[in-house]
Write a protein that binds this DNA or RNA. Structure first.
Lengths: 222, 222
DNA sequence: TCGCCATTTACGGGAACCCGTAAGATAACG
DNA sequence: CGTTATCTTACGGGTTCCCGTAAATGGCGA
């Protein structure tokens, strides 16, 4: 297939200019541009209604915040909503995010078709990715597969993230059961929380919750 | 003054292309390019020795890691070294980093001349910044001054960062005095460590060290 | 219904942490 | 030299956390 209607969601002027050139080099039509996620979603909706849906979405993950409040805070929200509206839309993420946990989630949870880390050779990567996606193939960042296997001493469940998130917000461990209860999260017993944290620390060879929180922040898990 | 010799250190192909265009629009000469910090520093050294020193360094902060080990891990290291070699070199940082703590440090500690956050309108910002710097003025990001005043409930000292860093690495509080002692950091008493942490938590309205660690990670303080 | 298994919760002792108070060290100043 | 002010450390009790064990709960098949 050849892409006819392309939507680029990217607010870095500097990246936009270059993106446009790359698409030209691939002899693709000029893309439409959105500078924040809400706008992008509107454009996708309108295009669908008018019977000229986009066939490729190229989007960044993070956007500059201005005063105005937005429905969609980031690219993840955009991808989620876009996929609900139009499941067949191809999604290519283009971001300087390089944390494996974040990238992996996009593939696993949202079935994105490609991810490109902004960096050396990103323009060339972009071309390759678009070509692959046009053939209905997924495109993975260069070093994605290699790091994919390592370091998976523990895979964090939603439950894990909830607990660790609460710790990071300043909740005392002993107060977590009450929170879990009132949010219908189970198990909620203090013992269960303790055991879970203990298990994770063990699996990761961590000694303290502070270390665990730091790790999760670093990896973009929370 | 008008810049004659410009060095751009940036590995995002996508940004480089756009940077070049912007400099053209300002009718400045073509810049030299480096794709990682070590290379940039070599170029600065050579240029100095050959009597045609650079007068402007435009640099990103973060670079993609490849296999090879580098002397300078990031743009901060480059700026530090460059300023030692050539104190009069103008430095303009161009990065998607938006954490105030990181930006502030660059101005305060390294006396950078400008910082531009990659984002909406960055190309225009770039022009403004270069014009300002050419007039020997500093250039600040748009929302820098506004957020500068707020949220300074506590300014983290090197001592603070050391302690919090140790916690984030999994050190037990009770083991920190020994570490401080063996690294000639003072005060090293357990009481002092406790008091300091308590003070910080208080100033920030935090309840737990986990929260403090999360905050510092988020802000790029550690 | 009963019994079995896995999961969750309750409990208790020991360690670590929090915090207020007071004693000790250090430096500045008259 | 003595005094004072500040910084650092020591101590103690109350709380929270850690962790092993045991009891309770909740399917699920016989």
């Amino acid at each position: 297939m050849k892409f006819e209607n392309i939507l680029v969601t990217e607010d870095q002027g500097v990246a936009n200019r270059s993106l446009r050139i790359t698409l030209e080099e691939l002899e693709l039509p000029r893309p439409h541009h959105a500078y924040y996620c809400d706008h992008a979603l509107t454009m996708i909706t309108t295009a669908l209604r008018d019977g000229r849906p986009y066939d490729l979405l190229v989007t960044d993950l993070y956007f500059q915040v201005d005063g105005t409040t937005k429905q969609l805070p980031d690219g993840v929200g955009l991808i989620k909503s876009a996929r609900q509206l139009q499941p067949d839309l191809k999604v290519l993420v283009f971001s300087s995010e390089s944390r494996q946990a974040v990238i992996r989630r996009l593939y696993d949870e949202f079935n994105i078709d490609g991810f490109i880390v902004k960096g050396r050779g990103d323009a060339q990567d972009l071309k390759n990715a678009i070509e692959q996606i046009a053939k209905n193939k997924r495109y993975y960042p260069r070093d994605y597969r290699s790091t994919a296997t390592q370091n998976n001493l523990h895979t964090f469940t939603a439950y894990d993230k909830t607990i660790i998130g609460l710790l990071a917000e300043g909740y005392a461990q002993k107060d977590i059961p009450a929170w879990l209860d009132s949010h219908d999260v189970s198990p909620s017993g203090l013992s269960s929380v303790e055991k879970r944290l203990s298990l994770i620390r063990n699996a990761m060879n961590f000694t303290k919750n502070e270390q665990l929180v730091a790790f999760c922040k670093e990896m973009g898990i929370i």
